[in-house]
Design a protein around this nucleic acid. Sequence first.
DNA 1: CTGAAAGCGCTTACAG
DNA 2: CTGAAAGCGCTTACAG
Lengths: 336, 336
Amino acid sequence: MPTIKDVARLAGVSISTVSIVLNDKAEERKVAKETAEKVLEAIKLLEYKPSMAARRLRSSDENKPVIALYWPLDYRTNFLARVLMGLQGEIKRRNFDSEIIVCTYENDNLYKENGLTSKNKFSAAIVGATSEKDMEYLEGLESSIPIVLYNRFIDKYNCVCNNDEESGLKAASIFARNGHKRVALICEDGSPIAAMYRIKGFIKACKSLGIEIEEDYVIKTENTYKGGVLAAEKLLKGTNMPRAVICDSEMLAIGASYVFNKNNIKIPEDIEIIAYGLMSTDSTEYTTPPLTIVSIPSEEMSAHCINIIMDILNLNIKETVHKIVSPILMVRDSVK
Amino acid sequence: MPTIKDVARLAGVSISTVSIVLNDKAEERKVAKETAEKVLEAIKLLEYKPSMAARRLRSSDENKPVIALYWPLDYRTNFLARVLMGLQGEIKRRNFDSEIIVCTYENDNLYKENGLTSKNKFSAAIVGATSEKDMEYLEGLESSIPIVLYNRFIDKYNCVCNNDEESGLKAASIFARNGHKRVALICEDGSPIAAMYRIKGFIKACKSLGIEIEEDYVIKTENTYKGGVLAAEKLLKGTNMPRAVICDSEMLAIGASYVFNKNNIKIPEDIEIIAYGLMSTDSTEYTTPPLTIVSIPSEEMSAHCINIIMDILNLNIKETVHKIVSPILMVRDSVK
DNA sequence: CTGAAAGCGCTTACAG
DNA sequence: CTGAAAGCGCTTACAG
């Protein structure tokens, strides 16, 4: 990385002069045109980029805490909005003088990000939607800043998680109440971790309530609207249609509903649908039909994340915190 | 802001010692327990926070360009995912060694953000979804870094905009083709700028095609699913229902569809619906019915933003660029 | 018109 | 076990 010194040397002037030109003060400070041009040329030649760190230090910029939210950039970006709004809401409510910044990463590639291992970039980080490989990386990591995992559990980190057993129980209870003995499950293929736990929670609850989930009633697909469509079509082609189905996201449920509606399979009379909710709750409020959801308590989880970070940054509290939060059940027309 | 010097003075030790304690090297460097405690106490007392800028400078951290995406944190967060994915896609495609960071701001309060006026925080910024007041602020601003406006126009800035006239024409043409003479319009109350232009474009196109939009056919509401519901209910109560309606977002269109479906008003037989699309296009693909949209060419717009920034940062190109991009029409079942 | 020097707040190699 | 000093890359007040 060339520095201002290199530019000065190449241009044959002092670093003061370079700085002046750099800051568009050449005219004001009456730098000779010729000199300015030499400097500009050297800058271009060297591809010189001023060091922001040096500038910040020099100008004694404020030093308010910066919280990074690490979130992957795939279909899960759909869930980002709600998390972000939750975080900002709590920051505002608590008057926490801080800045939140979203860093996107690619799943399985969290290790490429240097924000967690550098003390110099962020004051703290919230890490969400990690893959199994990312989790392994985190397991082994000696992070340089406080970290809170969002809906993921690793003992050594602060964690804020949805209560997946409760999610399962809330969904399964409705199906049990309505007399179902067999339930279908639509979920993501190669399910990410959170989904895995949600699904486990659901299956466990089903068992405890005498509901069965047969092998061929588990449909794995991509976690998109289209995926929901494909899954429902697969169910339709099967020998006996289920009378109840749980979908691991609103996208899946909306896609599936579309297919059922189209094929004159009445929801909830012919088939009842429950979705696990990750997006803002109104996204399933006016679908056909409005969907019953067991929703991630995203707002509450975000609030916990902020509170944990405030405790660490402001009060210097060092114990690791694990929070488990209850999901939100919203019963709507897709169940009887 | 207390510095390491202040801590050293209060603790009665040298700054080296403070630094050692700070970096958890107290044991390794065999600092006396007593000394370490004095330091820790001083840190707590002064609420000392190390300067990240100084640390970065000292450790000669890499200095890769950081691009800030300014986006407001309201219902428009729903549109953020698509923009973000577009930006990242192009960054990846062009192998641009840079980082993108999302900075959320509150509408009308862009002036409170200091990232645009400081040379020390970001290398460049993309600013989206500004309010009128934010635009006034930008008009008067002497920004310190390159700025690209996303779907907003101010002559002195780089701008990447949707072609709102074309959007209007694409939508209006369908209605004209299907013989409509009167069309209703559902849009946000106190419409934000982009909406205003989209709407103007639509009205202009309608006029040119002999379609009328009567006063009481313009329904202003909040830009949410619920808002769409309320607007449609209002139309239903009117003396003569429109046979065609344009909605300024998918949320509005989905809410309105819900009401029409519920009241046995057939789409598209009884009423045709077109929505302006801002979210990812599959969000309206499996609604009831699938919605015809005129979609913001978000991916293309994002690509332009990145390209403009690359030109400035890498090639030192200084001319202001204005790009106008054609919207994407997706005809689906909500029109005949 | 231009340059030498101080100093922003840290960390680290070195000395003792 | 602890401290004095150098230096990271800038900007700005000052001198000439």
